[in-house]
Nucleic acid binder design. Structure first.
Lengths: 234, 234
DNA sequence: TCAAAAGTGTTCTACCTACACCCATGG
DNA sequence: CCATGGGTGTAGGTAGAACACTTTTGA
């Protein structure tokens, strides 16, 4: 026996909701679609799953092909599968959100289909159900980030506490008390203080920190509470 | 244009990890596989997605066909997609966990392929990667149940606080302090006290409660804390 | 009247929150 | 020398954890 008979096979794609943070705003990386129909319209980065690939493999490949980035934090969060979501042909989409350090992302040669960053509050119209996917991805991001230290993935290797705070404020669209935030954050034991200071944003300068990688991995599943009353955001 | 050319289409199934609670143990409902290969071996309840169905539709249909149950709480939690997970033909599986009131489930006529309940600590050997799926489903169940009141779905319409506690203890395989548990539980405002008592398990008798449905729905997203130190279970 | 389970009460502690205040420094 | 942002300190409140005790009633 080499296949199940009488069954219906479906095209399966992966789509990546790619989050970045430029220091002030949380942004999403979109591309112009390079296929008909809807050619040239904004779209998530996606691609079909090849015969030898798992969905994870495909998502990793798509991300690398389009951005040049490897070892990116990704989370499979939902399958979108309404029969008519793609007007061309039934296509299932396995959706991932990805968190990248926006500065690692090298501007691709700006061709007609080059990717572009959009702030969350100013997204362009998108193909198919991609706007729904973004909405749900953001919700998932907020949910997961309220409990686990994933937002570090959006920052460079060294960062300051105030930077991290504005990242959290960007993700949750609120302001947090600086003093409580930094105390909670430092008490997690996740950070290692460096000697260097960032003098960009203040005269006093803020110390850089880096992640304590082993502590990070060991405590990843632990619930954190960097976000006060997180459930109000869902 | 009626389809994307040159792409590889994949068979897509849904599989349901069906949890039940008999008052003492958390159990899973398995069936004997009715297809070659591995015919007769234990398997999750599953089926292929039909052309007109979304994955949710398919999971709902499979569950109803096999158990007769409608309106069951289900959560899509992961796609399993390693290219070789099904030896017959590449098959993607969208996995759902389902929570049913075990007493609602009417024993099907006990044919050769009739479903059977297995306690979590005594599962039979299963086909393909179904054991992995169960493991991850249990983890997801514990994760979600630590934060949201989903375990009510495993109990009948009326239930006592001690019953609910042994359910939680079954899911997390620990014991909780009775006094703290009931106080926390009642303070959620999720329960409505009934006049009737359950006299089965004690002489004094324990009051029955039912869910306050509107409160349940409104507060579903809120984080609860019925499980002390939940992260130690992940 | 006693055993067994249900249910209420109390204290201790830890953490979260909301503040006020000092620090460092570039202009 | 002062404005600006960085960082630390402190007091009050709340909620969770650990514990003791009373209540009910069938046998």
């Amino acid at each position: 026996m080499h296949e199940y008979s009488g069954q219906h096979r479906i095209l399966v794609a992966v789509d990546c909701i790619i989050f970045g943070f430029d220091g002030a705003n949380v942004k999403l990386l979109l591309v112009k679609r390079d296929l008909a129909p809807e050619l040239g319209k904004w779209s998530l980065m996606g691609g079909f799953i090849a015969p030898s690939e798992s969905p994870e493999d495909a998502a990793t490949r798509v991300l690398e092909e389009r951005t040049g980035l490897k070892n990116v934090y990704m989370d499979q969060f939902m399958v979108f599968g309404k029969p008519d979501r793609d007007p061309v042909e039934r296509t299932l989409s396995v959706a991932y959100f990805a968190l990248i350090d926006i500065h690692q992302y090298e501007e691709q040669l700006t061709g007609e289909f080059s990717p572009e960053w959009f702030p969350l509050d100013n997204m362009p119209e998108m193909i198919f159900d991609h706007a729904d996917m973004v909405k749900i991805a953001l919700k998932e991001l907020r949910y997961k980030a309220a409990l686990h230290p994933i937002l570090f993935q959006l920052l460079p290797g060294k960062f300051t506490v105030p930077q991290l705070q504005s990242l959290y404020e960007g993700v949750y669209q609120t302001e947090f008390d600086d003093r409580n935030f930094s105390r909670k954050l430092l008490s997690t034991g996740l950070l290692v203080k460096l000697d260097e200071k960032d003098k960009q944003s203040s005269k006093k300068g803020a110390f850089y920190y880096k992640l304590d990688q082993s502590h990070y991995r060991e405590n990843f599943e632990k619930f954190l509470n960097l976000v006060p009353n997180p459930d109000k955001f869902f």
